[in-house]
C-alpha cells in the first residue's frame, strides 16, 4: 500500500534554521570569548536529532540548542575548548528531563533551573554531566511543582 503522510515524514525541525541561528549567535558569544565553528554546528545539529530520538520528542524550527548556547555562554565553567561539548550534553539532558516530567515545565524555566543547577553544583568547574543529573533535575522540578 502507498506511504501515508505521518508526523515522522513532516520536517518540523529545520537544520538550516538551527545553523543560521548558531552562526548569528557567534557575534554574541564572542563577548565571552566563545565561538561555534561550522564543524561544531554540524555536530550539534546531529546531536539534536539523536537527543530528540532518544527522548521520544519532536521539535519545531531552530529549537532549544541556540537558547542553551546563549544562556550557558556566561557560565564560569565553559570556555572556548569545552563549549560545544557542554551544549551537546546539555541538549541531551534538556530533552531527557523534559520528557521525564511530561512537559510540565516550560523551556524557559527548565533552562533557568539547569543553569542554576550547574553553576551552583560545579562552581565553575566543568564536571561530569550524566544520567544522575537528569534524576536530580527531575526531582527538583517535581518538588517545585508540588510546592505550587
Amino acid at each position: 500500500m502507498r506511504s501515508l503522510i505521518t508526523v515522522n515524514t513532516i520536517p518540523l525541525s529545520d537544520p538550516v534554521l538551527l545553523k543560521n541561528a548558531l552562526v548569528d549567535l557567534n557575534g554574541f558569544l564572542s563577548e565571552y570569548g566563545l565561538s561555534i565553528t561550522d564543524k561544531q554546528i554540524k555536530r550539534l545539529s546531529d546531536a539534536r536529532v539523536k537527543a530528540l530520538r532518544a527522548s521520544g520528542r519532536i521539535e519545531l524550527g531552530e529549537g532549544i540548542v541556540p537558547v542553551l548556547a546563549r544562556e550557558f555562554s556566561s557560565c564560569l565553567f565553559v570556555n572556548e575548548n569545552n563549549f560545544a561539548d557542554v551544549i551537546e550534553k546539555l541538549t541531551y539532558i534538556f530533552f531527557e528531563v523534559k520528557t521525564a516530567v511530561c512537559d510540565r515545565i516550560s523551556d524557559k524555566d527548565l533552562v533557568r533551573l539547569m543553569k542554576d543547577f550547574y553553576e551552583n553544583r560545579y562552581f565553575g568547574f566543568a564536571g561530569n554531566f550524566g544520567e544522575r543529573d537528569v534524576d536530580v533535575l527531575v526531582k527538583l522540578i517535581e518538588l517545585e511543582l508540588a510546592g505550587k
Binding site: 508526523v7 521520544g56 520528542r57 521539535e59
Partner: peptide, 30 residues
C-alpha cells in the same frame, strides 16, 4: 500538502504548549 500539514501541525503545537515549549513528545505530536 505535506508542507501545509507541517505548518498546521507546527501552529497547533505552538498553541498547545502556549508558546512555552519548542518541543513535544512524539505521542503528543501524533
Amino acid at each position: 500538502s505535506r508542507r501545509d500539514l507541517g505548518n498546521a501541525l507546527a501552529s497547533l503545537i505552538t498553541e498547545f504548549t502556549g508558546g512555552e515549549s519548542t518541543s513535544v513528545l512524539q505521542d503528543t505530536a501524533n
